[in-house]
Simulated assay, not measured.
Amino acid sequence: MPRAQEKELVALASRIWHAEVTGTGREEWPGYFAEQLLRAPYRDVRIQAGIARTVTGHPDRVHVRLVWAGTDPAGDYVDGRLVQVLLARHSTTWGPVRQPL
């Protein structure tokens, strides 16, 4: 994948993850967050690193792996946490997809 596209997808996944753990910005992806309640928000969230890779055999799906840090609901600072966000292309735009548990 071209570096410019990877940067764009990492930035998108970062915004989605920030909304996931802080609650801020969830209205941008109402279908993605419709059934997900925010139990206890994190604060001071920042993304430390990220990469995007195409899902094998699915050029319209991308896994974005992020390393992130933030202050947990108990007030403890945690860093080096890993998460993966799945994105799918719908026509010309990318959006988040919930991964099955």
Rank of each mutant, 00 (worst) to 15 (best):
V55P: 03
L9S: 11
D44H: 01
G31E: 03
G80H: 07
H90I: 02
E8S: 09
G23V: 03
E8R: 09
D72C: 11
T24V: 15
T54K: 03
A4W: 10
G57R: 03
E6V: 14
P100W: 03
E20F: 15
T71E: 06
T22L: 14
R53H: 13
R53N: 12
P2W: 00
A88K: 12
Q36A: 11
D76V: 09
I51K: 15
Y42A: 06
A40R: 14
A13D: 12
V62W: 04
L37Q: 12
A74M: 06
P41T: 11
S91M: 00
L86G: 00
P41Q: 14
A49E: 09
L82Y: 05
W29R: 08
R46P: 07
V78N: 15
D60L: 07
R26W: 07
V62A: 09
I16D: 10
V83D: 08
R26D: 01
L38R: 02
V62D: 07
V45S: 09
V45Q: 14
P41V: 10
K7N: 03
T93F: 02
G23S: 09
Q36S: 12
H58Y: 13
R43A: 13
D72G: 10
P73N: 03
Q36Y: 13
R39H: 13
H58W: 08
P100H: 01
G57D: 08
W68Q: 10
T56P: 01
T54D: 03
G57Y: 12
D72N: 15
I47V: 14
V55E: 06
V21R: 14
A88H: 11
R43S: 15
G70V: 10
V85K: 07
P59I: 05
A19Q: 12
H18D: 04
P100V: 04
A74P: 02
T56I: 05
V45W: 11
R26Y: 09
G80A: 06
E20M: 15
W17Y: 12
L66N: 11
A52C: 01
R15V: 13
L101K: 14
L87E: 07
G23T: 02
A34L: 08
G80S: 05
V10Y: 08
Q5T: 09
A34H: 07
H63V: 06
H58F: 11
V21F: 15
I51Y: 13
T24N: 15
Q99L: 00
M1G: 10
P73T: 04
I16G: 13
R81S: 14
W94D: 01
A4H: 13
R61A: 06
A34S: 12
A52N: 01
H63I: 05
R3A: 15
A13G: 10
T92A: 05
D72T: 11
P59F: 12
I47W: 12
P96G: 10
R43P: 12
D72Y: 13
R3S: 11
A40G: 14
D44W: 00
T71P: 03
A52L: 00
V78H: 14
I47N: 11
M1I: 02
H63S: 04
G50A: 08
M1E: 02
Y42H: 13
L101T: 15
G31A: 00
W17Q: 06
V67D: 00
T54Y: 02
Y32L: 05
W17C: 07
E28I: 09
Q84T: 12
R98H: 06
L12V: 04
E6M: 13
T54P: 08
S14H: 04
E6P: 07
V85G: 08
D79V: 00
G70L: 09
T24F: 15
